[in-house]
Design a protein around this nucleic acid. Structure first.
Length: 420
RNA sequence: GGAGAGGUGGCUGAGUGGUCUAAAGCGGCAGGUUGCUAACCUGUUGUAUCGGGGUAACCUGGUACCGAGGGUUCGAAUCCCUCCCUCUCCGCCA
C-alpha cells in the first residue's frame, strides 16, 4: 500500500504512475471515499467522546438524573453503531481500491510495457553450438536425471521427479547459493512451506479468487507458499526494529508452489514452468536511505552466482508496466536457454520500498520517531530453471554435460554428467 | 486429536464492572551524591491516530488500544461467544 498522505498531496503524480504501470484505478472514487471516511471517523469519535463523558459522570449522578443520562447514552450508542456500519461499507471499498494502487516508480525505470524493458548489461555471449543441442528434457532422459511421466501419474501434469545427478544438482545449487549468500552477510533461514492466508495477503499475494496462483489446503486456514518471500516477510510482521538493528539480511530456502493455471505452450514443457520447485531467496529489511544500495547489492550477489555457474545472461531493468503492484524497481537476470533459443528469466530482485512494510506493519525506531522499513527481495537461485541453463548450455556433442567448476565440490567432485 | 490452565506495558507481575494507561518491582532516561566503578536518592518513562498552538524539539484536547474479532452494559482488562497463541497432561507420530 502506498502512503496516504503522499497520495493526497500528489494526486496527479499517482494518477500518472498508475497509467505508466497500466493499472486501472478509480482515483477520483478513492479520494471521494477517503474524504467520506475521514468525516465519518471524526463524527464517530465526537459522539463517542460524549458517550464517554456521560459514562464517567454516571457514578456521581443522583438517582433522578440517572435514567435520563442512561437513555441519552443509549441513544448516542445507537448513533455510533449506525455510523460505524456506514463506515464499514465505505472503508471496505476504500481499502479495496487502496490495495490496488501500485507503488511509486523509480525515476530511472523505463516507462511502458515489456517491449520497453531495458537491457542494463550482458555477461558472456549466448552459447554457440557446432551441433544441434539437445533440450534439457532430452538430456534428462538420456542420463536419467528427471521423470515427468511417472510424476504425472503420481501428482499430475507439471510435476517432476529429479533423479541421480539431477537431484544432486538441486542440492548442490542450493548449498552453493546459500554459501555465497552467507559470505555476503545473509543469515540462513529455512521457512515453513505453508502459511496463513493473512500472511499471504500481507505480503501482497492473493490467496483466493479466480486469478489466484496459490494453492489452498482444504479444511485448513492455510495455503502453500509461492515463494519464501511470504514467510520471510511475515517473519517480522508487526515488529518495530531499533534503527541500529537494521539491516536484517536473510537467505531463505523453501519449496514454492504455483498453480500456473492457464499456462501452456512450448515454454511450459519440462522444468521451465512447474507446480513445485525449490528456491533460495534473498531478503533485506533496511532503512529508506539504504534500500537503493541494497537493491544493487542483491543484484550483485545474484550476478556473482550466475557468473560462477558460467551461465550467459543479461540483466533487465523492468519497464513500468512489468513491475506488478508492489515493486518500486525490479531487475531480472535472464539466462541463456538453448531450448528457447532465447533468454529466460532466472532471477528477479525487487525494491518494494515501504509498500509491503505498511501492510505487514514493520517499522523501525530512530530516537522517538518510528517509520516503515524498506523491504527488498531477490532470487539467489530458482533451482529448476538454473538446472535447465546448466544442462543445456554445458552439453557436449555426445550429450555429456560439463558441471561448472564452482559446483563440482558440491557434486562429490564429479566433473561431467554422463561419464563415470 | 482429547482434557485442563493461561495470554496485561521493554520485562516480571497485580488488577474480576466505573476513581484503570492500568499498582508494585526491574529495566530505560534525566538529575543529585561521589577519587573511579558500584551503591544510594529524586524525578521521569507506552503506541497509533485526529484536531488546536509553536519555525522546531515540544505543548495541549479528543479517540482507540490489556492476544484478535464480535456481543452484553449508561460504562468492560474485568462478564459472554468465536478464533489465534502459549504451557501442562494424555493420545498419535518422523
Amino acid at each position: 500500500m502506498i502512503d496516504l498522505d503522499y497520495l493526497r498531496a500528489h494526486v496527479d503524480e499517482v494518477k500518472q504512475n498508475c497509467a505508466n504501470r497500466k493499472v486501472k484505478v478509480d482515483l477520483e472514487k478513492f479520494l471521494d471515499l477517503d474524504q467520506q471516511r475521514v468525516t465519518l471517523i471524526q463524527n464517530i469519535e465526537q459522539i463517542r467522546g460524549e458517550r464517554n463523558s456521560i459514562a464517567e459522570h454516571m457514578p456521581k449522578a443522583n438517582k433522578e438524573e440517572k435514567p435520563g443520562l442512561a437513555a441519552k447514552a443509549k441513544q448516542l450508542k445507537e448513533q455510533v453503531q449506525q455510523a460505524e456500519a456506514e463506515l464499514q461499507t465505505i472503508e471496505t471499498d476504500w481499502r479495496n481500491i487502496w490495495m490496488t494502487i501500485p507503488n511509486l516508480t523509480h525515476p530511472d525505470t523505463p516507462i511502458g510495457g515489456e517491449d520497453k524493458n531495458k537491457i542494463l548489461h550482458t555477461w558472456e555471449k549466448p552459447t554457440h553450438f557446432d551441433f544441434a543441442p539437445r533440450t534439457h528434457l532430452e538430456l534428462g532422459e538420456k542420463w536419467d536425471l528427471m521423470d515427468f511421466e511417472r510424476a504425472a501419474e503420481v501428482s499430475g501434469q507439471k510435476f517432476y521427479y529429479l533423479k541421480n545427478e539431477g537431484a544432486l544438482l538441486e542440492m548442490a545449487l542450493t548449498r552453493f547459493a546459500v554459501d555465497q549468500a552467507m559470505k555476503a552477510g545473509f543469515s540462513l533461514m529455512l521457512t515453513p512451506d505453508l502459511a496463513r492466508p493473512s500472511v499471504l495477503e500481507g505480503t501482497g499475494y492473493q490467496p483466493r479468487g479466480p486469478e489466484t496462483q496459490i494453492y489452498s489446503i482444504e479444511g485448513h486456514d492455510l495455503a502453500l507458499i509461492g515463494t519464501a518471500e511470504i514467510t520471510i516477510g511475515g517473519y517480522h510482521q508487526k515488529t518495530t526494529f531499533e534503527a541500529a538493528d537494521l539491516p536484517k539480511k536473510y537467505v531463505g530456502v523453501s519449496h514454492c508452489f504455483r498453480t500456473e493455471s492457464g499456462a501452456y505452450g512450448k515454454e511450459s514443457r519440462g522444468l521451465y514452468r512447474i507446480h513445485q520447485f525449490t528456491k533460495v531467496e534473498l531478503f533485506v529489511f533496511c532503512t529508506p536511505e539504504q534500500s537503493e544500495q541494497f537493491h544493487t547489492d542483491l543484484l550483485a550477489v545474484e550476478e556473482s552466482i550466475f557468473q560462477a555457474l558460467e551461465i550467459p545472461y543479461q540483466v533487465i531493468d523492468n519497464a513500468s508496466a512489468d513491475l506488478g503492484g508492489p515493486a518500486y524497481r525490479k531487475f531480472d537476470i535472464e539466462g541463456w536457454m538453448p531450448f528457447k533459443n532465447a533468454y529466460g528469466e532466472l532471477t528477479s530482485t525487487s525494491n518494494l520500498t515501504d509498500f509491503q512494510a505498511r501492510r505487514l506493519q514493520i517499522k523501525y525506531k530512530e530516537g522517538k520517531k518510528s517509520q516503515f522499513v524498506h523491504m527488498l527481495n531477490g532470487t539467489a537461485v530458482a533451482i529448476p530453471r538454473t538446472i535447465i541453463a546448466i544442462l543445456e548450455n554445458n552439453q557436449n556433442q555426445d550429450g555429456t554435460i560439463q558441471i561448472p567448476a564452482a559446483l563440482q565440490p558440491y557434486m562429490n567432485g564429479k566433473k561431467v554428467i554422463g561419464q563415470v
